[in-house]
Design a protein around this nucleic acid. Structure first.
Lengths: 154, 154
DNA sequence: GCCAAGAGGTTGAAATTTGAACCTTCACGC
DNA sequence: GCGTGAAGGTTCAAATTTCAACCTCTTGGC
């Protein structure tokens, strides 16, 4: 007898649900991304602008932003670099912590966001929220909240 | 009065759920990806191998495979190219349709998959399935099934 | 049969992401 | 004060993904 524990495979239903999640998520993200393209943004750029717009003074430290989006600092540096070139975000060095850098939403960034937001939200509704019962959608919130919690940062 | 329709923003709860989904999915995928790295695979490679392993004769047409994973044909060509270099997959031209190409799981590919699968499934359980009640997990299946259905292929 | 439109795939270059190495600056213990 | 280890960011190169252009072969109409 081996000492390995028997694998707890997913049962048929779980398997189907897991696959549905994978495929559905892939299609959903691709769709939202496509829809945003008309504003010259990807969903990733969009989320960055949203986070900044909600922050005090419309700015956030790079590391903070990276954590909220679960991105590597490196990736964020590159992306913000592009957003800066497009004049949607501005970087300023943090006075209290000389290592730090603030990413701040520009006026142009805010305006573009305000243009794109209604359209994007409509997409989220049409392709996800409105397809679920309120209970089912709440379940998604609960589960992925637990997932985030369980996995923790980085 | 403008003619634009009032935007139906997400309410506070929906907003929270949507964010949880975004962050949770990001963390989950990153985690599963990391865990698979020890086998030299990413979750994307893994899914390809799984699909092939389940297909008759352990092979699938490239276009078919691309659709199931919701990937561009181009991306799949590149990825399969790498898997082929690693001798996990083999490509043969389809006799009935001369345009077509079969991607077929090699013996080595099957063995690697059989090694990785228990570990991967355990990760899916620990970081998702076991964190949800059966009802909540079923809800996820229902919703994303509807999402896939709604968005349709490509 | 012949042709046009389109499906199935690949290619190569450009864009994005990853990963490790590398600065600066902080925080702390001594 | 002085190191030392860690945090915050950036950089460069390698790996991956995207995008458009381009073949080959199939289909369907005439």
């Amino acid at each position: 007898m081996t000492t390995t524990t028997e694998t707890r495979w997913l049962d048929a239903e779980q398997q189907v649900a897991w696959r549905a999640y994978l495929l559905g998520t892939a299609r959903l993200m691709a769709k939202l991304d496509d829809d945003l393209r008309q504003f010259g943004l990807g969903i990733n750029d969009y989320e960055i602008l949203v986070r900044l717009s909600e922050a005090p003074d419309r700015r956030l430290r790079m590391a903070d932003l990276a954590d909220r989006l679960h991105q590597s600092r490196s990736r964020l540096t590159h992306t913000v670099g592009r957003l800066e070139t497009a004049d949607l975000v501005r970087r300023t060095s943090c006075t209290s912590d000389k290592r730090g850098v603030w990413a701040e939403l520009t006026e142009a960034g805010l305006q573009l966001l305000e243009q794109a937001a209604p359209y994007h939200v409509e997409g989220v509704r049409e392709n996800l929220v409105d397809l679920a019962t309120p209970e089912d959608f709440a379940a998604i919130g609960r589960v992925f909240d637990a997932v985030s919690e369980h996995i923790g940062q980085r």
